[in-house]
Measured scan of single mutants.
Amino acid sequence: MASDGVVVEIGKVTGSVGTTVEIPVYFRGVPSKGIANCDFVFRYDPNVLEIIGIDPGDIIVDPNPTKSFDTAIYPDRKIIVFLFAEDSGTGAYAITKDGVFAKIRATVKSSAPGYITFDEVGGFADNDLVEQKVSFIDGGVNVGNATPTKGATPTNTATPTK
């Protein structure tokens, strides 16, 4: 695992066909100046998982989280898009600690492993708008004895992609 920078880890949970599971997305290594904004994309298989919603985690402190935390689910493109932009203008609602960034709610549709993997990152910046190093650890849903650990090695991303 990367020793510096922010680590975004997609949790690994267990479920069975027809059940709804909650998959946490963790941030670790949050910089001392916090995270003022970030955007990134995960990939998944809508034939295996139906993403039914995404909720902000406990490290989102904006009293009205829909102003700073936004997501979009595109089953036709097989992606989930995340956007966080601190909304106070003063840094008061920045992410300042490690913990759960988001909770992905999904219904298991198939007995195949439900991988959720890193696809791309736009950027991560602290309260001074300084770009942060970030790496990703894939996860998803274990169905029966299947284990979604494909790509469990962190993917280092030093520069934003478009």
Rank of each mutant, 00 (worst) to 15 (best):
M1L: 06
M1T: 10
M1R: 06
S3L: 05
S3F: 13
G5S: 14
G5V: 06
G5A: 06
V6I: 15
V6Q: 14
V7Q: 05
V7A: 10
V7K: 10
V7F: 08
V8K: 01
E9K: 09
E9V: 12
I10R: 00
G11P: 07
G11V: 09
K12W: 10
K12C: 05
K12R: 08
V13F: 04
T14R: 09
T14V: 15
G15S: 06
G15K: 13
G15I: 10
G15V: 08
S16C: 04
S16G: 08
S16P: 10
V17S: 08
V17Y: 14
V17W: 03
G18I: 14
G18A: 10
G18Q: 08
G18V: 09
T19K: 13
T19N: 14
T19G: 07
T19W: 03
T19E: 01
E22G: 06
E22R: 14
E22I: 04
I23Q: 12
I23G: 11
I23T: 06
I23Y: 07
P24Q: 06
P24L: 03
V25S: 08
Y26G: 04
R28Q: 03
V30L: 13
V30W: 02
I35V: 04
I35S: 03
A36P: 02
A36E: 01
A36L: 07
A36I: 14
N37H: 01
C38V: 02
C38L: 02
F40Y: 10
F40M: 03
V41P: 00
R43E: 15
R43T: 06
Y44C: 15
Y44F: 05
D45E: 08
D45A: 08
D45T: 11
D45L: 12
D45R: 05
D45W: 08
P46Y: 06
N47R: 06
N47K: 05
V48S: 05
V48W: 15
V48F: 04
L49T: 03
E50A: 05
I51G: 04
I51P: 04
I51H: 06
I51D: 10
G53D: 06
G53R: 06
G53K: 09
G53L: 08
I54V: 04
I54M: 03
I54S: 03
I54G: 02
D55Y: 04
P56K: 08
P56M: 02
P56T: 10
P56D: 11
G57H: 04
G57K: 14
D58C: 04
D58M: 06
I59T: 13
I60L: 11
I60M: 07
V61K: 14
V61L: 13
D62V: 14
D62R: 14
P63N: 15
P63Q: 15
P65K: 04
T66S: 07
S68L: 09
S68Y: 14
F69V: 04
F69T: 09
F69I: 03
F69G: 04
D70W: 15
D70G: 15
T71K: 06
T71G: 00
A72W: 01
A72Q: 00
Y74F: 02
Y74E: 00
Y74V: 00
Y74L: 01
P75L: 03
P75Y: 13
P75G: 05
P75W: 07
D76L: 02
I79H: 01
I80S: 14
I80R: 00
V81H: 00
V81K: 01
F82P: 00
F82I: 02
L83I: 00
L83Q: 00
F84I: 01
A85G: 00
A85M: 09
A85I: 13
E86I: 00
D87G: 14
D87A: 15
D87V: 15
S88Y: 13
S88K: 03
S88P: 02
S88W: 15
G89S: 02
G89W: 15
T90V: 15
T90M: 09
G91D: 15
G91P: 14
G91L: 03
A92L: 10
Y93G: 14
A94P: 02
I95K: 01
I95Q: 08
I95T: 09
T96F: 10
T96G: 11
T96D: 08
K97M: 05
K97Q: 08
D98F: 10
D98W: 04
D98N: 05
G99Y: 10
F101C: 04
F101H: 06
A102V: 05
A102E: 04
A102R: 14
K103T: 08
K103D: 14
K103P: 14
K103L: 11
I104L: 12
I104Q: 03
I104R: 01
I104F: 15
R105V: 14
R105E: 05
R105Y: 14
A106V: 13
A106Y: 13
V108C: 12
V108L: 10
V108Q: 14
V108Y: 13
K109M: 07
S111A: 08
S111G: 13
A112C: 12
P113M: 02
P113W: 04
G114E: 09
G114Y: 05
G114C: 06
I116S: 09
I116R: 01
F118W: 14
D119W: 02
D119C: 05
E120C: 02
E120A: 04
E120L: 01
E120R: 01
G122K: 00
G122M: 00
G123W: 00
F124I: 02
F124E: 00
A125D: 01
A125R: 00
D126R: 02
D126L: 02
D126A: 02
N127V: 02
N127Q: 02
D128N: 04
D128Y: 08
D128G: 07
V130R: 14
V130Y: 11
V130N: 06
E131K: 01
E131P: 04
E131N: 07
V134K: 03
V134Y: 02
V134E: 02
V134A: 08
S135I: 06
F136E: 05
F136T: 03
I137Y: 13
I137N: 12
I137A: 14
I137C: 06
D138L: 09
D138G: 06
G139R: 08
G139D: 06
G140Y: 09
V141R: 12
V141T: 12
V141H: 13
V141K: 13
N142A: 12
V143Q: 14
G144A: 13
G144T: 13
G144L: 12
N145I: 14
T147E: 13
P148Q: 03
P148G: 03
T149D: 09
T149L: 13
T149A: 11
K150P: 12
K150S: 11
K150F: 07
K150N: 11
K150W: 15
K150H: 07
G151T: 14
T153W: 15
P154A: 09
P154E: 12
T155H: 10
T155C: 11
N156Y: 11
N156I: 09
N156E: 12
N156G: 08
T157H: 12
T157G: 12
A158N: 12
T159L: 11
P160E: 14
